[in-house]
């Protein structure tokens, strides 16, 4: 594990991605304590105050400190995206591995159905699910997880099929190993690496999707300072105070970039050929 970390830091993408994510993790954990002001404190005198000594990133339409809202809002954005991706990965990996293991007609039927489900654009599927389950952050998370599952199933299956055809798995079959040994000891450790990489990159999509649902009014609900919601609120005040819009936009982008960079870094670091 420490070995992996060392190799990760050696790749430029991995180093930058990890650094950004450490900062984001700190913000998620300690946001309320780091925030210079109370994010809900309304200050009518300070409405649309530009960035300066009092409000580092400026103040919004109610005079609330934008930086404080961002720092606190990280909690309602990033963990949700992370949870949605993990849930989607677990569902997808189970289906994908099962499909690869069953093989034959079952595999064909499962994969054709997954292809068909993937014909529904991810955002549309999430929208349909949220409108059924009801608005709210938790429901949005579940919807994103379900929307991600088919894609993860595809990835896992193709990796698992590839691993299944390796001679060391054949050797285990020839030895007469039990199915559980083959799946968990021979296949899974080798399937894990590409799936972890794919998952990491997908967190960035989840962050964006979650913010989009909130932006459309179906995800996190006011007065939460979720970043997508902040952008939605800020749109009508673009003329007076562009910073209330730009700050959360950049926060979303930085998070997405961080996970993308980490994913690319992991891809290099997890390549077993580089393990020397």
């Amino acid at each position: 594990m420490t070995d992996l970390l060392r190799r990760l830091v050696r790749t430029p993408q991995g180093a930058i991605g990890l650094l950004l994510l450490l900062v984001l993790a700190a913000v998620c954990l300690f946001g309320p304590w780091l925030a210079p002001q109370d994010p809900e404190k309304i200050d009518f005198l300070g409405r649309f105050r530009p960035a300066g000594a009092e409000n580092w990133f400026g103040a919004d339409q109610l005079g609330r400190d934008v930086l404080s809202r961002l720092l606190v809002g990280a909690r309602s954005t990033i963990p949700m995206a992370l949870a949605a991706t993990l849930l989607g990965t677990v569902i997808g990996s189970v289906v994908g591995t099962a499909s690869a293991y069953l093989g034959g007609r079952w595999d064909e039927a499962i994969m054709r159905t997954i292809d068909a489900v993937m014909a529904v654009p991810g955002l549309l599927l999430a929208l349909l699910l949220v409108s059924t389950l009801g608005n709210g952050a938790t429901n949005a998370m579940v919807a994103i997880a379900v929307a991600f599952a088919p894609g993860m199933a595809r990835v896992t299956r193709s990796v698992a099929l590839n691993v299944r055809n390796q001679d060391y798995v054949k050797a285990a079959i020839v030895r007469g190993e039990r199915g559980s040994w083959i799946v968990f000891r021979e296949m899974l450790p080798n399937v894990m690496a590409p799936v972890v990489i794919e998952t990491t990159i997908r967190v960035s999509f989840a962050v964006m999707l979650f913010a989009t649902l909130s932006f459309l009014g179906l995800g996190a609900q006011p007065p939460a300072s979720e970043w997508g919601l902040m952008v939605a609120d800020a749109r009508q005040y673009v003329h007076q105070a562009p910073w209330i819009l730009i700050a959360p936009s950049i926060a979303i982008a930085v998070t997405a970039i961080a996970f993308n960079l980490l994913g690319d870094g992991l891809r290099d670091a997890m390549n077993p050929r580089n393990e020397r």
Binding site: S204, M208, G228, I246, I252, A256
Partner: peptide, 22 residues
Amino acid sequence: SYLGVAFPEFVTATLFAMLLAD
């Protein structure tokens, strides 16, 4: 390409509208 995939449509749309329209 790193920057491009990091901005969700609603952010790009809002930023473009702010710049080119408003």
